[in-house]
Design a protein around this nucleic acid. Structure first.
Length: 756
DNA sequence: TTGAGGCTTTCAACA
DNA sequence: AAAGCCTCAA
């Protein structure tokens, strides 16, 4: 078997150690994923372990998908039967199978942060507290923080963990919150893990059945596991003891989500017979990049000392570029991208631009767009977070789980059907009085007095849909069902009537959503609607299907540094390296905070294979106002002699055009920047090479069966003339002129007839 | 009850 | 700068 030939000594040892506990300390770029995938392949090929006996968890869906693909490409399609998921997704799997043992029906809703906030907001109002003074999001994060804590999972009264001395009773809110979730048959993200622990602890038969199913465990990014995740790994692997964890304390960046670094540091005391293997040869970054990254991370006090060695040889030094403002920073970034493309043959997909907060992406996006460089934004406003998608999902969620009031309240008057606050209050009080759920009140017509027409309509439409819910696998296509909802709820018609650029975009997104349902059902023909909903609730870092200008793949990648974890790119820009941005203002007051920011910076730099550009802007617009920012301390932690220093002065005006950023004369800033930083030497700005011609737009309706100016018959609007054709395939859109007004339709939804 | 327009608040990272 | 909340006229 030459599978092992491509591995170095320690990697090989890690692959060959299949029985008993194993801890792999894997430095950045040391081939961690390679080891995990080879280990899985080795287990299957050489040890003849069946794929379904292997349990692997990674940190993101993306990483899980990637790992599946890599395993499949090594050993063929059987690799796809290995259980590779995120912890949350594995928990949903376990809860679906065994949740009923602890009273959780399979059709539970999963509440994300905004769902949690609306629950809390209502509780606050019922307690006569002002949601404007006490922010629901703050309460939600306190609740979540407590639920991440080991003590709670181990059965301590939550009230004792909640901070006191507030003007309100936090533990009362906490209690009501959970009562509310229970009554709505909903779980939040923390619950998924906590309830899974409960199942494993409380039901020996469930545990035994899972332990006999899974015999080999691999936990990636172990430094970022929280206590519940630690317990889930521990219980599941207790039978076989074949647990392999992989991690790097320097890359722990999720302590704010309850990640507990002690899990990895205590592994050896948990498993005294554990084998420990360290991977410290870096196969990703050139020497100067690795040097700079290590120079930064060495400033952390609280870490295991280690030294990574680059196997990639010498390269270009890391560049620091100081700009006068955020617009200039973006200009420098985009100019450098263009110049590397034309002079050194890099292509768009070789570049990644990182930032600390999502809001920073805008300036860079603007400039990329202006220069016609295709880009994609990973994370940020997720596709499933868009209003119209959330609305449709709320319909689905409510139909699957009629106790889900958060969803009900979202859709009851969306689109507008004349159900306002007064009616909703009446429903609520009737529900409370009769101890029924709001839907039971609506459904059973339990309201006294006259009922708005819209409510009766809503009741009838929803009842019909609930009866048509694809229950038996294969009875009705999920995608067809979703299309029915979009139609019969009036959602689609409402958007069609609006005819604005925005409503068109929304229709497009809804169409894209239907496509995603279609893809899902093709991949999993037996899945029920509840499976689909639960799966997509966990799918968050998925990039929007229509992000950027070009989905063709060759695009510059934009994302937060957090999102960059586990990825690599030839050229990396880390932007906004300023005090109060990166490190972030809210982390700056504590050593732990700063150290986590520093690890984040380390993660960012170590994503790069060949080039790193660190940038900061002196003047940045935040919340609509301009602020001066000092360069980040992390820049000063890189010795001047291994870094190339530039400064870039923006040409032209700022984005808002009011001259705030009027160009300074080059050299106007003669005074050296504050002491610890090497003085930026004015250097010619990278001259923008001729921008590569942007791809010509996909010709209108290349393969379409329709042609411009053709006459067609619409079932509702009658005969019209096609005046515009956009998109193609499933996205084909036709704008048709009826008399003096025009309407745009998605071709795939519209039964049009051609008129000869 | 609706929806336009004005005022306020918000941006930390994510499953 | 942009989203969300509130108010008020219709």
């Amino acid at each position: 078997m030459n599978m092992l030939d491509k591995l170095n000594e320690n990697q090989k040892k890690a692959v060959l150690h299949t029985e008993g506990p194993l801890l792999i300390f894997a430095g950045a770029g040391s081939g961690k994923t390679r080891v995990i995938t080879h280990r899985i392949a080795y287990l299957m090929e050489e040890m003849h372990v069946p794929p379904w006996s292997i349990f692997a968890v990674t940190f993101t869906n993306k990483a899980a998908e990637e790992m599946k693909n890599r395993v499949a490409s090594m050993i063929g399609p059987a690799g796809r039967d290995v259980f590779i998921r995120t912890f949350h997704s594995a928990s949903v799997y376990i809860l679906r199978r065994f949740g009923t043992h602890i009273g959780i029906p399979g059709n539970f809703s999963i509440f994300d942060q905004s769902d949690q906030e609306s629950v809390v907001k209502r509780i606050l109002m019922e307690m006569h507290l002002d949601p404007k003074k006490i922010r629901p999001s703050a309460i939600v994060s306190k609740i979540s923080e407590v639920k991440d804590r080991a003590e709670l999972v181990d059965g301590t009264d939550p009230a004792s963990l909640l901070p006191e001395s507030y003007s309100y009773d936090l533990s009362e809110i906490y209690r009501l919150y959970h009562e509310e979730l229970k009554s709505q048959n909903a779980l939040d993200f923390n619950d998924l893990l906590i309830k899974t622990v409960e199942v494993l602890r409380g039901s020996p038969s469930c545990l035994a059945s899972l332990q006999s199913q899974w015999r080999y465990f691999m936990i990636d990014e172990y430094q970022d596991t929280n206590y519940s995740q630690y317990l889930i790994s521990k219980y599941l692997s207790k039978g076989s003891r074949n647990i392999c964890v992989v991690g790097d304390d320097d890359q722990s960046i999720y302590s704010w989500r309850g990640a507990d670094i002690r899990n990895i540091l205590n592994f050896e005391s948990d498993y005294p017979d554990a084998r420990v293997i360290t991977l410290d040869r870096n196969y990703r970054s050139t020497e100067p990049i690795l040097e700079a990254a290590q120079a930064v991370i060495r400033h952390n006090e609280n870490r295991k000392d280690k030294d990574l060695k680059s196997e990639m040889g010498d390269g270009e030094p890391v560049t620091w570029c100081h700009s006068s403002n955020d617009y200039g920073e973006a200009e420098f970034t985009v100019n450098t991208i263009m110049s590397l493309k034309s002079r050194e043959g890099f292509s768009n997909s070789d570049f990644a631009v990182f930032y600390r907060t999502n809001a920073q992406s805008r300036v860079i996006e603007d400039l990329l767009r202006r220069k016609s460089i295709p880009y994609r934004v990973v994370g940020g406003l997720r596709f499933y977070d868009r209003k119209e998608i959330r609305d449709i999902i709320a319909y689905l969620r409510f139909i699957v789980n009629p106790l889900d009031q958060v969803s009900l309240m979202r859709i009851i008057n969306t689109p507008a059907r004349g159900i306002g606050r007064a009616t909703i209050d009446r429903i609520r009080s009737a529900a409370a009085e009769k101890s029924r759920s709001p839907w039971e009140v609506i459904q059973g017509s339990l309201l006294t007095g006259k009922v708005p027409k819209g409510l009766t309509l809503f009741r009838d439409v929803m009842t019909e849909l609930m009866e048509a819910l694809p229950g038996v696998p294969g009875s009705k296509k999920l995608s067809q069902f979703v299309m029915d909802i979009i139609e019969s709820s009036g959602y689609r018609e409402n958007l069609l009537d609006e005819k604005s650029a925005e409503s068109t975009a929304r229709l497009e997104n809804i169409d894209e959503f239907v496509n995603s349902v279609y893809d899902y059902e093709s991949g999993q023909p037996d899945a029920a609607m509840q499976d689909f909903l639960q799966d997509i609730s966990l799918f968050t870092t998925e990039e929007s299907p229509d992000a950027g200008q070009d989905s063709g793949g060759n695009a510059v990648t934009l994302m937060t540094v957090h999102n960059a974890k586990g990825l690599e790119f030839p050229v990396v820009f880390i932007t906004g390296l300023e005090e109060e941005i990166f490190p972030h203002r809210l982390s700056i007051d504590s050593d732990e905070g700063i150290e986590e920011e520093r690890r984040l910076c380390y993660v960012g730099i170590t994503r790069a294979k060949e080039r790193v550009y660190l940038t900061n802007a002196e003047l940045r617009r935040t919340f609509g106002t301009l602020n001066y920012r000092e360069p980040s301390r992390f820049i000063s932690e890189i010795p001047g002699h291994i870094m190339q220093v530039k400064s870039y002065h923006s040409e032209g005006f700022s984005h808002n055009g009011n001259g705030v950023f009027r160009r300074r004369e080059t050299g106007a800033r003669k005074s050296a920047p504050s002491a610890p930083y090497p003085a930026p030497s004015p250097s010619p700005s990278p001259s923008p090479s001729p921008a590569p011609l942007s791809k010509p737009e996909t010709g209108p309706g290349g393969s379409s069966a329709y042609s411009l100016h053709e006459q067609v018959l619409h079932p509702k609007y009658g005969v019209g003339r096609i005046i515009k054709i956009e998109g193609s395939g499933d996205n084909l859109k036709l704008t048709i002129l009826f008399g003096s007004s025009s309407k745009t339709f998605m071709e795939k939804y519209t039964p049009l007839e051609k008129c000869p």
